[in-house]
Design a protein around this nucleic acid. Sequence first.
DNA 1: ACGGATTTGTCCGTATGTATC
DNA 2: TGATACATACGGACAAATCCG
Lengths: 243, 243
Amino acid sequence: MPTNAGTAPSSNGTSNSALEQLRQLIQQHPDQTQPLPAERELMQRFDVGRREIRRALDVLEEEGRVWRKQGKGTFTGPNGPAQPLSLQALPKQSNLQEVMEARLQIEPGLAKYAALRATPEQIQLMRRLLDRLNTLSPDDRDQIELWDSAFHRAIADAAGNRLLLGLFDAIDAIRRDPSWQAVRNAARNQERLNRYGDHHHRIIEHIAARQPKEAARVMREHLLALQQAFLSTLNDDEEFTDD
Amino acid sequence: MPTNAGTAPSSNGTSNSALEQLRQLIQQHPDQTQPLPAERELMQRFDVGRREIRRALDVLEEEGRVWRKQGKGTFTGPNGPAQPLSLQALPKQSNLQEVMEARLQIEPGLAKYAALRATPEQIQLMRRLLDRLNTLSPDDRDQIELWDSAFHRAIADAAGNRLLLGLFDAIDAIRRDPSWQAVRNAARNQERLNRYGDHHHRIIEHIAARQPKEAARVMREHLLALQQAFLSTLNDDEEFTDD
DNA sequence: ACGGATTTGTCCGTATGTATC
DNA sequence: TGATACATACGGACAAATCCG
């Protein structure tokens, strides 16, 4: 109905105002270790509803400028130009595509070697880790990250190549960067979690059955599905059941 | 004002998760009779909450790497020191088999991406490096190592993935360890050098022709031939026909 | 044998983000 | 829009277990 919406609330620009003020606040908040003011405080400071604040933060989180954690606070993301980059010369500055390419390069091979070399104890450990992963609440993101990472690392460990395990750890350390939490969370939904759980199950069964090619293939499928989920959340706002 | 916690932002280092740092700590803690630092000390050392420490310890306990007892402490597991092999610290604990497996995992994919992404300048650089390599005297081993490494690195660079390039450099640093010079020299003879030269030539032509699958396949053949050469020199004494 | 010290295990209050009404 | 319940995180405090003097 293109008729003039008319008589919209005179404070028509409030939403824009909240987002604008948030952007300014982020600019003046270079400390990435200190949380931004709480939503309830921002609500009062900008004199808008909390929903407004959260909408604006949703935008900023989608843009990668901030990341939020329940119980902890909202933090500025990779906004600041100065990244310490202190510890190692390894490219800490990477991006999700590079990480997924690297994972696709080594983890299928890791699964293959694990199918050839894993001891029964290591296979049992994978099963236990998977049980822990499956009994988690679907919205328990941090825990899922933790146990999922532990599962993949158990495979890398069982592959019996310390050098490849070191490479896996290097990738994993970059993969878990907090600034990508928003993308990772967006790429997770119940349907996908079920699919990933199925992948995990099939991977470990192939490893237990000593089927290296199949283990590598399913691992590759798993990572490709993950990569696709990241891509779709970045490009599409709508949820296409691609793949 | 949110109650400031800690106020120790100088030693930031939040990039590495507590679990990752715990793994390194365990690796450097071979004494099974002595407890690990207390949770509250680890909390301060890693600048994370005790909850995160305990969840990381949950994972490590499930993996069997540590065991905890109330009032006593946390100890490294009975299965002893496993095998992380961190990148930054220690290259020399690896072996040739591990290195070749890692190269086989990484470099074919690198060649594939190089075929897709290499700029004309990068391809020209590869050709120049190969020319230098081919004009060398067969007994100029150090030079051969040098230019061969540079050629492979040019491919890794052209792949356009900084993370994978970092992994390649990590492997390459280990590969060029002087302690393996004897094996590498023994695995080199004129016939093999000719074969490797042919491999190199086909790899770069596939990259220039934008044939990713073929480039990856030849790279894989090349590395498999290398691996085979190492194996035969290790098993047979008659292979030493050089000089 | 006793008690203080230390460590892991557990719980509670507060603060924060998340979700629903 | 505003308000309320819910889940999580952190720090503090306490309990239980162990160690040591």
